[in-house]
């Protein structure tokens, strides 16, 4: 079972929920940080890192001796990463999406795959939990390519018959967030009952419900704000699997890098029950592996 923990609004507690679930998991688990722009999961899990690799994307390299300046590459490229200006081929590697179109279309075989550094993938272990994370290079604009490479690594790590993973997704509801949840079996939305939290929660529901995966909510800082999110969940038949009460001492523990399940026995019980409910939610799907349309 792969659980993606997503939110819409940032700062609602995705990483807290991911780390807490990891501490109460009752079997082999890979905890994955896919918020590659601002990865934080390691700050709470504090894994021992055992390996890392630099992730690259293929970008075109030009062999000028073969190029006839026909412009086929430049005509095809939708991102203007390669441009023929008279008797010169210019490349803008930072604009490339790595689609491979220019390499495929070049009639002279004048292009070969070069590399653009996307960032770093690292992995390790904390107790029984395997840790995996991506970290975007500063200045790199696109996060989905690195996320795809982290997911490929996850696929290698999981046993062939499935296995469990929890993904800490980036905030928002646009391409990076969708990329993080698209290969999961269950999407867990973490929100807070404030107007901002609720508005972004609705956006997240609109973005993720078309994926046809089971969706569920965790309400963090319960007791703050208003009750609109509860009414919305009831209307949409979205189960609320856990509530974490608003409590200044929880906020302070978080501020000290503590995992909240280690702060209070009550919260630990909360997360054990959340874990079991997630399992139940994922069960109706055939054999636990995501089915794609």
């Amino acid at each position: 079972m792969i659980v993606a923990v997503a939110s819409g609004k940032g700062g609602t507690g995705k990483t807290t929920v991911t780390a807490s679930l990891a501490t109460v998991w009752d079997g082999p688990l890979v905890a994955v940080d896919l918020d590659v722009e601002e990865p934080n999961l390691h700050l709470f899990l504090q894994p021992a890192i055992s390996g890392s690799q630099t992730a690259h994307m293929p970008v075109p390299l030009v062999d000028e001796s073969r190029c006839t300046y026909c412009g086929a590459c430049s005509d095809l490229c939708q991102f203007k990463a390669i441009s023929v200006m008279g008797q010169l081929v210019l490349t803008f590697p930072e604009m490339c999406h790595g689609c491979g179109g220019c390499l495929a279309v070049c009639p002279e075989k004048a292009l070969s795959p070069g590399q653009r550094e996307l960032g770093e993938i690292s992995w390790g272990r904390v107790g029984q939990v395997v840790f995996l994370s991506g970290r975007l290079r500063i200045g790199e604009a696109m996060s989905p390519p690195l996320m795809r490479r982290v997911k490929a690594k996850l696929e290698q790590m999981l046993p062939a018959n499935g296995g469990d993973a929890i993904i800490d997704a980036p905030p928002g509801v646009s391409c990076p967030a969708v990329n993080a949840v698209i290969d999961s079996d269950v999407v867990l939305l973490v929100t807070e009952p404030t107007p901002f939290g609720f508005y972004d929660f609705q956006l997240a529901w609109e973005a993720f419900s078309p994926l046809g995966k089971p969706l569920a909510a965790v309400i963090n800082r319960a007791g703050l704000g208003h009750d609109a999110v509860y009414r919305f969940c009831r209307e949409k038949g979205l189960p609320i699997l856990a509530e974490i009460p608003y409590d200044r001492s929880i906020a302070e523990a978080y501020a000290r890098g503590r995992i909240i399940t280690e702060v209070s026995a009550g919260l630990r019980e909360n997360f054990i029950s959340l874990r079991d409910k997630l399992r139940d939610l994922a069960r109706p799907g055939p054999s636990g592996k995501a089915v794609h349309a």
Binding site: S74, Q78, F79, K80, S83, M85, M95
Partner: peptide
Amino acid sequence: VMAQGAGIQAAE
């Protein structure tokens, strides 16, 4: 409508 690279296209 181009998401990116309008300046390069304009130069072309």
